[in-house]
C-alpha cells in the first residue's frame, strides 16, 4: 500500500476523497437517524472521533455554546420582591475605563436630595458597533454587574440608534445570567456570600 501511494500519488489522493465520500454514507447507515437534530447527535459529531458528515445544520441544529462564550455585554439586575429591577451596577466606571475601544458611556446618577453622586447609572450606553467582544468589562467589574451574553442572533436591517444599546436593552435579569452561565454565577454567589459573612 505504501509503495502504491508513492508511485500513484494522484490515485492515492483520489482514494482519500473517495474514502471520505463513502464514509459519510456508512456512518449514517450505522448511526441511524439519531445522529441528526438531537442533542446527543450534535455532541457526538463534535467529538474527536467523529467521522462522516460534520455539518451542524444551523438553524435547525445549533452548536452548544460553552459557558465562557461571549458576544456582547449586558447588565445584570436582581429581581426585587415587588418586581422592581435592582441593577447591580454602581456606576463605578471601571468597565468604561478598561474597555479597549472605549465604547462604554456611563452617566452617573446624582441624588436629587443632596446633589451628590449616587451609586447608580442614570444612563448606560454601549455602542455595539465598536465593542470588540473582549470581555474585559465583565472580567474586571468588581460587582458582577456586567456580563457577557450568549445571544449572537443580532443581525438586522439598520444600525444608527439601534446599535447604541441603552439601559433598556442592556438590562437582563439575574435568572437569565444564571441560565447561561450556571457555574460562573454559582461561584460568584459563593464568593459574595463569603465576603458578606464576616461583616454580618
Amino acid at each position: 500500500m505504501k509503495n502504491f501511494g508513492k508511485r500513484f500519488g494522484v490515485m492515492s489522493s483520489l482514494g482519500v476523497t473517495m474514502g471520505h465520500f463513502f464514509n459519510t454514507y456508512i456512518v449514517d447507515l450505522v448511526k441511524g437517524k439519531k445522529r441528526y437534530r438531537t442533542t446527543e447527535g450534535i455532541e457526538a459529531r463534535r467529538q474527536s472521533d467523529t467521522e462522516g458528515i460534520f455539518t451542524i445544520q444551523y438553524p435547525e441544529e445549533q452548536l452548544p455554546l460553552p459557558e465562557e462564550f461571549r458576544v456582547l455585554p449586558f447588565l445584570v439586575y436582581d429581581e426585587g420582591e415587588n418586581g422592581e429591577k435592582n441593577l447591580r451596577c454602581t456606576a463605578c466606571g471601571i468597565c468604561s475605563k478598561v474597555c479597549p475601544p472605549q465604547c462604554i458611556w456611563i452617566y452617573r446618577a446624582t441624588d436629587p436630595a443632596t446633589g451628590k453622586p449616587s451609586p447608580h447609572p442614570a444612563e448606560f450606553h454601549i455602542d455595539i458597533d465598536i465593542c470588540m467582544n473582549c470581555g474585559f468589562c465583565a472580567e474586571y467589574c468588581p460587582f458582577d454587574a456586567i456580563k457577557m451574553d450568549h445571544d449572537f442572533e443580532l443581525s438586522g436591517y439598520t444600525r444608527g440608534e439601534s446599535h447604541v444599546f441603552g439601559l433598556d436593552t442592556l438590562m437582563k435579569p439575574v435568572s437569565y445570567y444564571e441560565s447561561i452561565r450556571p457555574a460562573n454565577a454559582a461561584r460568584e454567589a459563593a464568593a459574595r456570600a463569603e465576603k458578606a459573612k464576616p461583616k454580618a
Binding site: 444551523y58 458576544v71 470588540m132 449572537f152 442572533e153 443580532l154 443581525s155 436591517y157 444600525r159
Partner: peptide, 15 residues
C-alpha cells in the same frame, strides 16, 4: 443587513 459581533461566529453569519 448588519451583523454585529467581533467577529460574528459562523452561526451569526448564517443568521
Amino acid at each position: 443587513v448588519y451583523i454585529p459581533g467581533c467577529p460574528p461566529t459562523p452561526q451569526a453569519l448564517l443568521h
